[in-house]
Amino acid sequence: MATFTKEQVKRIGDLAAIALTDDEATSLESELNGLAESIDELNTIPTDGVEPTTNPVFLEAYLRPDIAAPPLDRDAALASAPATENGMFVAPRILGEE
């Protein structure tokens, strides 16, 4: 059974906040199914009792002292924003029929 259906690709697109076009969803479906088949071969490798790795080099977290450093200048923080107002970033309305 194929791992991905086109509907699923679109649903994942929603989760990833990408408004995929129909054509993109179609080509992604076949490409991703090819990759999924290859990835599924990982299940032939025994890993019982093996711990998962997040960082390849084992390290304890460094905990920094609670000392403040100068903040970004507000103009610098806002300089690249697509839209600002009163020193704040403008977001389009948050609620609305989807």
Binding site: V9, I12, G13, D14, A16, A17, I18, A19, L20, T21, E24, L28, E31, L32, A91, P92, R93, I94, L95, G96, E98
Partner: peptide, 23 residues
């Protein structure tokens, strides 16, 4: 809406390979 803005921005701003990997 903000959500639709984000989805349209990311659709237009990322190329095919990046989208493939994100999905």
């Amino acid at each position: 809406t903000a959500a639709n803005m984000m989805a349209c921005t990311r659709e237009a701003g990322f190329g095919p390979e990046v989208k493939r990997r994100i999905i």
